[in-house]
Design a protein around this nucleic acid. Structure first.
Lengths: 244, 244
DNA sequence: ATATATTGGTGATATATATCAATAAATTCT
DNA sequence: AGAATTTATTGATATATATCACCAATATAT
């Protein structure tokens, strides 16, 4: 059986096809791992560990040493900034076939965010020393990683800036549009995330988020029940996002 | 006369000693430009332009094409995120001998922030194509830049997270401690920045900032007049920063 | 299937913060 | 030096948002 059909704990997967981190198809990682020769890819991956996390489990914990980077093979995870007094901020949802390097230098650093599984998640842990080694050997790869992390950081910063600049309706609109267009890429889409988590993506309390959602429903912008949301008037929602 | 004593417009400074971007002493840029050979440094700098900006002038404008990076030779500048409806957020104060690359990939990108002079500023504009060229030739430099931009981004993100997580007193405390310990490195320190700008560093209105400052004065944490602030009880201010 | 815990939802109220208006002080201009 | 403009300050008020308390609905365990 190939490791792809057996995503349970596999420890040291010498026969892995690497497709958890290097899909031949759509995957955004191609801009990164696609630059590596088979030998280089092997040097990076041959001691990686593939691990299954259950929904809700913490994959990486803020403030712990940064020793591995993580590729999500399948499932969905959230990137959380844990603030004082239990105030969490969800900065990003990571989907299948995405590396998560962001949130630290490569070496001698700690994790600046927590990553937790939102669904069951299969992922690979890759040694940062191997990554660093590869960087010293493949300059194109270094430059690609530089661009990749810049992009990631700017996205997260943009999210944060929106959170500090906008009123609640604008922030809720942002969250809904992000879920529809980036995370689930469908309309209607299911609520895999709890209201609490959606609130943490929008920088507000659960109660406030629910109230905002209800107002959108009342004014016909969306329709929703316990399990799903449908965006009915995306243009108007984008207008709200632009702050009104 | 060397360009160092003549920081006015100098255009194409073939005889420049590069110390605007490569100080032999304390400068944080050493971790970057210190890695370059004289030839490499020359290839980066030989067509750079040194320009003087007057206090208040815009050096780089958000959303314009990213064609050059900027080194501050002397003076102080602010990094501003210009939001909709004139809501500005000052993310960072840049001092002498610091590169500002942050806020974009190296190529084919636009500026994600505005940079404006807070005092009179002498700075050099360096072609990003030259930088990119150097990256392709010097891997150590690529890795150093990767680490440098990661650091910068994380600092800014930390600032933003504080702005979204904390109440006003905590944010004002953060701003004051940042000014004392990072920007001016003295106590008391002068108000070069206007109250409006200090408020934009703290994510609030000018009026709210002033009120907060007054409360700190009343409870003996600081002393201030129109021109300067002195932090009297730094420990207590740090306590406020940790949110109370 | 029933009990128990968790999540979703609503209203009343408190609090943080912005806005508006008015004046005072400082700076710049002529 | 005096007028005009900008910046700082204060108070009164409005608004956005959080908190608290409570119940309904769903999921989970026994």
């Amino acid at each position: 059986m190939s490791p792809n059909q057996d995503p349970a704990h596999c420890g040291h997967c010498s026969e892995c096809t690497y497709d958890c981190c290097f899909s031949s198809r759509d995957c955004g990682n191609n801009q990164l791992f696609g630059l590596l020769s088979p030998e280089e890819l092997h040097s990076l991956m041959d001691n990686k560990r593939q691990i299954r996390f259950r929904s809700g489990e913490t994959i990486l914990k803020q403030n712990t040493p940064l020793t591995h980077l993580v590729c999500i093979k399948n499932g969905m995870a959230k990137v959380v900034s844990e603030g004082a007094k239990g105030k969490n901020l969800i900065l990003e949802i990571i989907k299948s076939n995405n590396v998560f390097t962001v949130g630290g230098s490569i070496q001698n650093d700690f994790r600046h965010f927590t990553v937790a599984a939102v669904t069951d998640v299969d992922c690979c842990f890759i040694d940062t020393n191997r990554l660093y080694n590869l960087l010293t050997r493949n300059n194109t790869f270094s430059i690609a990683l530089l661009n990749y992390t810049n992009e990631q950081h700017l996205k997260m910063m943009n999210t944060l800036i929106n959170l500090t600049n906008k009123y609640m309706p604008g922030r809720v609109a942002d969250t809904l549009l992000y879920l529809k267009n980036v995370v689930f890429e469908s309309n209607p889409f299911n609520f895999i995330l709890s209201k609490q988590e959606l609130a943490e993506m929008s920088g507000m309390t659960k109660e406030s988020f629910i109230r905002s959602l209800k107002e959108f429903e009342d004014s016909g912008l969306i329709r929703h029940n316990r399990n799903a949301v449908e965006i009915l008037k995306e243009n108007e929602l984008m207008e709200v996002s632009r702050n009104g």
